[in-house]
Nucleic acid binder design. Structure first.
Lengths: 220, 220
DNA sequence: ACAAAAGTGTTGAACGTACACCCATGC
DNA sequence: GCATGGGTGTACGTTCAACACTTTTGT
């Protein structure tokens, strides 16, 4: 029995929530889009395998990945009996210019609302990862892992709207998120936008860590 | 590489939250207490393997198990490279008179607050399952899977106090749980108790299913 | 009579939600 | 000057937390 890992890497840009996929360079399902991943080696933990495969196939490293679940149907892989452990992570799109490597002919970002047909049971894994992300967003301030270091409140609101799939009132959102006290207001504004420039904010991690310890929830 | 399953089965009685363990009948760690579980067979899914092992080792069947996580450290099992998928379930203690079977010399319930030393990394799996249970309790009405068909509000409150590890105000608890409208008030009372007899209630599943669809949360 | 748990309401504070208009900028 | 998104406050209703005493039953 083989143990594999598959990584669902989420990014965010103006077009909404994105997911990182690779085009398979080897059989089976050569040429199809799939989640980055591969087999766990005998001398590495499953967690280590996930990090290694992600780096080899996409060049993405140093991200915090969480387990989403394990997919163990008998027929899920035509190569034989393969049980796959799925991981999810959030990255800043700008920080991760992806590159093709090893058995991944290409790596590219896709809108999660409109992904290509995926190999194996990766569509189910992607769906589970989105559900996991929506749950996680209730407990942690996910926006800060997805956005640039300096961001506007509208960008942050966009993250939550994408993740939860509903619109949020602008005034109420600002009130809640500012009241948390984990945003640092910068003396800096957007540039080169065809409308009034928005103020930029930065995530105050020490303040967040203090809050998280006391068990606050980040539902918005 | 071998794939195993381990099952964390929670029950509830007057002594608090309980967990079902087996005494290992074979090496390695023969004689130690462990979570029921074993290896997944080539022709069954991981989910099926968990149900089969639980039945074989403890006689418990027809329970709804959820994945807790997958444990994949290289050194977690002295027999070699074993990746284990952990499952958790809630059962009514009274419905499951456990029995020893196959390679489990004994099966018995233990207080989750004070379990024996466990084999392999099962202490870590148990801790993860408890965390999973506390999270699950925020979204679903877990009490009803753990209690007898007819129960008192104090018993239900006891479940939540155990799971969340804190005391709850009796009046506020009753207000909230009754307001949910998923309890059916019975014309029946406790018997043979050395104090005023408490009214019995029953879980109204159709009402709950209607609520759950509309996305209510069950935090108490 | 006493021990033990059942049962019952109110109040004040905090929070969530709904809602509309003016502002700055680039074209 | 117009289109685009930025930025701001209030009022109402709901929910939550804190809190103490009387009732019933068995011994």
């Amino acid at each position: 029995m083989l143990v594999a890992v598959d990584c669902v890497i989420f990014g965010f840009d103006a077009g909404g929530l994105q997911v990182l996929l690779i085009r398979r360079g080897v059989a089976p399902m050569k040429g199809m889009w799939a989640l980055p991943g591969g087999f766990v080696l005998p001398r590495e933990s499953v967690d280590e395998g996930a990090r290694r495969e992600l780096l080899e196939e996409t060049g993405v490293e140093r991200v915090f990945m969480e387990q989403v679940g394990t997919f163990g149907d008998v027929e899920r892989d035509p190569r034989g009996r393969v049980v796959s452990v799925a991981y999810a992570a959030l990255v800043r799109l700008e920080d991760h210019a992806v590159r093709a490597a090893t058995d991944a002919a290409h790596a590219a970002w896709f809108d999660v609302e409109d992904p290509p047909t995926l190999a194996f049971d990766h569509a189910a894994i992607l769906a589970a990862a989105r559900e996991h992300l929506a749950m996680k967003a209730r407990r942690r301030p996910i926006g800060f892992d997805l956005l640039p270091l300096r961001f506007t409140l509208s960008q942050l609101q966009g993250v939550y709207e994408c993740v939860h799939g509903r619109e949020i009132d602008k005034r109420n959102f600002r009130k809640k998120v500012l009241a948390l006290g984990v945003l640092e207001e910068l003396e800096a504004w957007q540039e080169d936008v065809p409308h009034r420039a928005a103020r930029l904010y930065r995530f105050d991690r020490p303040a967040y860590d203090r809050l998280a310890k006391s068990g606050v929830n980040f539902e918005v």
